[in-house]
């Protein structure tokens, strides 16, 4: 009972910051010291969903960037995860460490170096440039999660399928991928959210031209319109929440998450 009460308190605290956001997004002229707004308004949300609004454009850009960087990270993360999870080879520890560096070392210096090249390639301030830079954190997370997924995968299934007549390609599509699908969902979930939430990387190489949702929220936070800021903030949460609920079962996959606890 004590445990339950404690947990409910903790969960309530975790939810607390959402409360003013939700209220502000529909409040008008909510001045101190009013505890509840005197007047509601749909103006902030109307501004968000107005056709051609910057928020909607940012939403779209964020979606495209997150989807592309997740797909790319998955493409390189699947083979790497297999090697790291299933095979023993000299230099494995060092390779794991190199893959881990981008998520534990500040990316600022790297970003300034990359930007130098992106400017010369004409990629600075383009969607492609941002996607490329978003691979910095997404590849490590994806690879770690997938290596743990593979480590818990019984290769006997593949041997079994081969002996029943499956070619290596058939084994991959009909046996391996379906069996590790829950783990892939977790990896993709992580990568998508990391890209979706990324601010600093976009800020540096987006050159103010690639306006993802976090960029728009950042600008709005520095302005004074709290109602609009709250509405944008709530908007930024929606897809992440849908994605999380959609894959809530996958998040219970301890094998996949455990991968982050063994880096």
């Amino acid at each position: 009972m004590i445990r339950r009460t404690l947990l409910i308190l903790i969960i309530a605290t975790l939810f607390l910051p959402f409360l003013p956001l939700l209220v502000w997004s529909v409040a008008q002229g909510w001045y101190f010291p009013q505890l509840v707004p005197q007047q509601g308004t749909g103006a902030h949300w109307a501004a968000v969903v107005a056709p051609g609004s910057r928020v909607l454009q940012g939403f779209g850009q964020s979606l495209v960037i997150a989807a592309l960087s997740t797909a790319l990270a998955l493409a390189v993360g699947l083979p790497a995860g297999r090697a790291l999870g299933l095979m023993a080879f000299p230099g494995k520890g060092a390779i794991k460490l190199v893959l881990l560096l981008p998520i534990i070392v500040s990316p600022l210096a790297t970003l300034m170096g990359i930007q130098f090249v992106l400017i010369r390639l004409g990629l600075n301030g383009t969607l492609a440039g941002v996607v490329l830079v978003h691979l910095l954190p997404t590849i490590p997370y994806m690879t770690l999660v997938l290596s743990s997924v593979y480590a818990n995968f019984d290769t006997g299934y593949e041997a079994q399928a081969r002996s029943l007549g499956a070619t290596p390609t058939q084994v991959l599509w009909q046996v391996t991928l379906p069996l590790i699908a829950p783990g892939i969902v977790v990896g993709a979930l992580f990568a998508f959210l990391i890209s979706w939430n990324e601010f600093l990387l976009t800020f540096f190489v987006g050159g103010g031209r690639v306006l993802t949702l976090p960029m728009i929220l950042f600008t709005s936070l520095q302005g004074g319109n709290q109602g609009l800021t709250a509405a944008i903030a709530v908007t930024s949460v929606i897809p992440a929440l849908i994605f999380l609920l959609f894959s809530s079962r996958a998040l219970q996959d301890d094998a996949a998450i455990g991968g982050l606890g063994d880096v």
């Binding site: 493409a75 000299p90 210096a109 790297t110 170096g113 090249v117």
Partner: peptide, 29 residues
């Protein structure tokens, strides 16, 4: 083991190129 290196190559080279390359260029600057 050469298969293992081949499998990690895409991920590793991307990270080395982006992270290591970025650091290198930053240092030169």
């Amino acid at each position: 083991s050469w298969r293992a290196y081949l499998l990690v190559l895409p991920a590793l080279s991307l990270v080395l190129l982006l992270f290591g390359g970025g650091l290198g260029l930053a240092f030169l600057q």
